[in-house]
Nucleic acid binder design. Structure first.
Lengths: 218, 218
DNA sequence: AGCGTATGTGGACGATGTTTACTTAGTAGC
DNA sequence: GCTACTAAGTAAACATCGTCCACATACGCT
């Protein structure tokens, strides 16, 4: 029934790479069942090791969970990057800026839909995302928050956003997509069909783009 | 050390109101530690009853948690109502509509800041909020989602929102405030000062109001 | 009065996180 | 190359949690 992928009974007394094995196992559990599903004992089991061995690498299960969370955040960042790669700076900086902002929002939401467990794990309880912890980044070296900032900078530089409106705009923009994602993943919008979520996502980023700037209409 | 407030050793064999006592105990635990902190055994302990007694009133701990969640949602609705009571329909329907929408957003966010544990408990995993379960409502008989709908209806009726823009607007608006609340409560914005959160909340509802309608500027 | 049943009790099981004490083997120093 | 240090894994135990089973109690209906 249970396919223990990783228990190929090692022959060395030392595992060699236990810390990583535990995080990997935890990541898979998070992927399937969210943050509450990352069980310390189960991780050691999958690594083919006694429960206590984990305590040589993590202070407690919260520490393990924190490591798993970092990994999840990196995945989010990677998903956003993937989306951002699709937009190139052409001759119209404003179009580029808009596309960048949209990429962040859609990348974020897309990941949430594709990997609900990891997404929920990424954003719960005490993540030090704000401080640029390299463990949270993907290939560009930016965490999701910084990727969003980048997109907003492009908006500002291209004249789409005044300096005043640019300030703290990441919080507003992020709130929006994050809220939709969580309402769908573990909230009352639980059974909303995927395509509708994505359609709402499109409307949402438009709303953000329009709503951020105080220029047009007061 | 531990003040067991409610264990006044009953003399009747029957508790009389155990179901309620358990929910109350659970609510307090949720208030302090969020959904993960509502422990079935602890609830029975506080009610001065053996652990299994709970199973005469709830199928399992998930059922208890569901009841607690409903109570939490009611509190959210009550907080929103409180805020909505402050705005009266005057001679300017549009002003009334705007104030209503703002009331929903601010009431929601305010509750999230005041009662983080209950708020997090209210919106996690499988809440049947969508169906108008009377257990989720407050004095007006409306759950948070319906209160939001009401405010948006006022926007529409007063001409601030076209029929097209009105459609599904509750999802967009809700996403926004909910996202900010969760980012602050259990996300990366964990240590943001309260006043800044509320200031952002103000900007947020403005953004929603401006961003919802496609009339002005496309 | 008697009885059915809703309600509460006691004891047990498996699972989890965590601690304490012990074992093993890789490595650094002489 | 031997030895001693120490990082890494093991074993056994404990407290807590959710849950199941069998049993006890007393409320309220006939």
């Amino acid at each position: 029934m249970k396919k223990n992928v990783t228990i190929e009974k090692r022959k060395t007394f030392r595992h060699g790479d236990l810390r990583n094995a535990l995080v990997t196992a935890g990541l898979e559990m998070a992927r399937i069942g969210g943050p509450n599903a990352v069980i310390l004992r189960e991780a050691t089991r999958q690594a083919g090791v006694s429960p206590n061995a984990a305590y040589r690498h993590f202070a407690n299960q919260a520490a393990l969970l924190a490591a798993v969370r970092s990994a999840c955040i990196s995945r989010v960042a990677a998903a956003i990057e993937e989306e951002m790669k699709k937009c190139h700076p052409g001759r119209y900086p404003q179009a580029f800026a808009r596309k960048s902002l949209r990429a962040v929002g859609i990348g974020y939401l897309g990941f949430a839909m594709r990997e609900p467990g990891m997404f929920r794990t990424a954003f719960s309880v005490p993540p030090p995302v704000h401080s640029p912890d390299p463990a949270n980044t993907a290939s560009m070296g930016l965490n999701p928050f910084q990727l969003l900032s980048l997109a907003l900078d492009r908006m500002h530089e291209s004249g789409l956003l005044s300096k005043k409106d640019r300030k703290d705009a990441e919080y507003l923009a992020w709130s929006t997509v994050h809220g939709l994602a969580l309402l769908v993943l573990e909230g009352p919008l639980h059974k909303m069909p995927h395509e509708m979520v994505l359609a709402l996502g499109e409307r949402l980023v438009v709303m953000v783009e329009r709503g951020l700037s105080s220029e047009i209409a007061h």
